[in-house]
Nucleic acid binder design. Structure first.
Lengths: 220, 220
DNA sequence: CGGTTGCGATGACAGTTGTTCACTGACCAC
DNA sequence: GTGGTCAGTGAACAACTGTCATCGCAACCG
């Protein structure tokens, strides 16, 4: 764009892309920690040593994948939180957006969900960091919402993390529905389930500042 | 117990235990899909071929670990749901119980959390099945609770799954706090965070049947 | 145009892996 | 006591892994 990079660099980035894509595909059936360097280069059709020109190790490729996968998620999450409309409509749109994202980038979603608690430390931390950024972003959006007016910073972040967690859990369910033979009905079931979960959280949110939960505490 | 099993079978179960324990220890730093059969037998001090006398494959050992790990969690979850007391006290006890369980069986907890979305199909399914059983159990407990009176079966299960998910998320946070050098303060932070999450869910629960969310929908 | 840069290819290294086979020898039922 | 059962052994296999120094050759820069 700014200055057309030479044939050389273009070719390099092309094989880099090929490595990332091949790895992502291979990761549909296994973990990152069991993914071999040679396995990836073989799938691309380059020599094993060529791998080192692009990544220091497989874990390094992993964190590159994290950035890529969560960057693709970023616009989705932004649209989700800024979606206009009343409660029920907001929920429906949010769930639909998650479903659409899973349809568009199933491999990315699976990778993030699988490696979030996976065995490769740097990848885990990269995911955690990016998700924390998401939560922060959601938290800021909540600050502008009248429903969350008067909330403490901590409480807002707590809710934001809850939303992010919910988003991932829902995405995971959609993904499972996607790989099941009986897809569409299961998909519908997940949609309704996710909507009800968000509804319950939303209700809790609206009554958060109602004061001490009624009828719970007898002590002053 | 019923009839003392011979020296032979006792010895066999002993090495079986050794294999399971060694595997669990090795899994603290890696995934099940990257765990080698020889790696396990080497740690125990037996010949690689001895492995086959106990498990068909590493995945097979994995599902055995699932049963063991989630059996240890079973009493904990039972105690949690049946804990008496009002809302706030219930929450505090539940969180404390989770923390205690993580302290008692950190390797088990890490294994479940890591392999829940891991790369080994049969293990994933075993975990899903067991967690579904837990959710069902929690759902039954909710049916006896006056707060959830009048709820549909579906809604009760939705809430139960939400609680189970929350439990795992909280356990994961406690586990991270456990492996951090600055343990105790982080642990306290997680305790408060988890309590607030449960509080919010509890509030949503109490107002679930309040009718259409007030102020949200203008249409009749 | 000529020298330099650097992506990718080659071949080889020492280890590792899962699985097989025939085998030993201690326990256990008869 | 004797013979069978079976947990564990040891050697061997083909295949695989990450990493090394080295090379070729096209693209780049002055």
């Amino acid at each position: 764009m700014s200055h057309t990079l030479g044939i050389r660099q273009a070719q390099k980035q092309k094989t880099r892309r090929a490595l990332l894509d091949a790895a992502l595909e291979l990761l549909e059936g296994q973990n990152l920690s069991s993914l071999g360097l040679r396995e990836v280069t073989r799938a691309v059709g380059v020599a094993p040593t060529a791998f080192y020109r692009h990544f220091r190790s497989v874990a390094d490729l992993g964190v590159a994948l994290v950035e890529e996968a969560l960057d693709s998620l970023h616009p989705t999450i932004r649209t989700t939180v800024s979606t206009a409309g009343d409660g029920e409509e907001r929920i429906a749109r949010a769930v639909a957006l998650i479903a659409a994202h899973v349809d568009a980038y199933p491999a990315h979603v699976r990778f993030i969900i699988r490696e979030r608690h996976g065995g490769v430390r740097p990848v885990r931390e990269a995911i955690r960091e990016q998700l924390a950024r998401f939560a922060e972003e959601v938290g800021e959006a909540l600050a502008d919402d009248p429903v969350s007016a008067g909330w403490s910073e901590d409480d807002r972040l707590m809710l934001a993390q809850l939303y992010v967690d919910q988003m991932l859990a829902t995405a995971s369910l959609f993904l499972e529905a996607l790989e099941t033979e009986a897809g569409p009905p299961e998909r519908e079931r997940v949609t309704r389930l996710a909507a009800r979960r968000l509804r319950l959280i939303g209700i809790g949110r609206r009554h958060w500042l109602d004061g001490p939960a009624e009828g719970d505490r007898g002590t002053p």
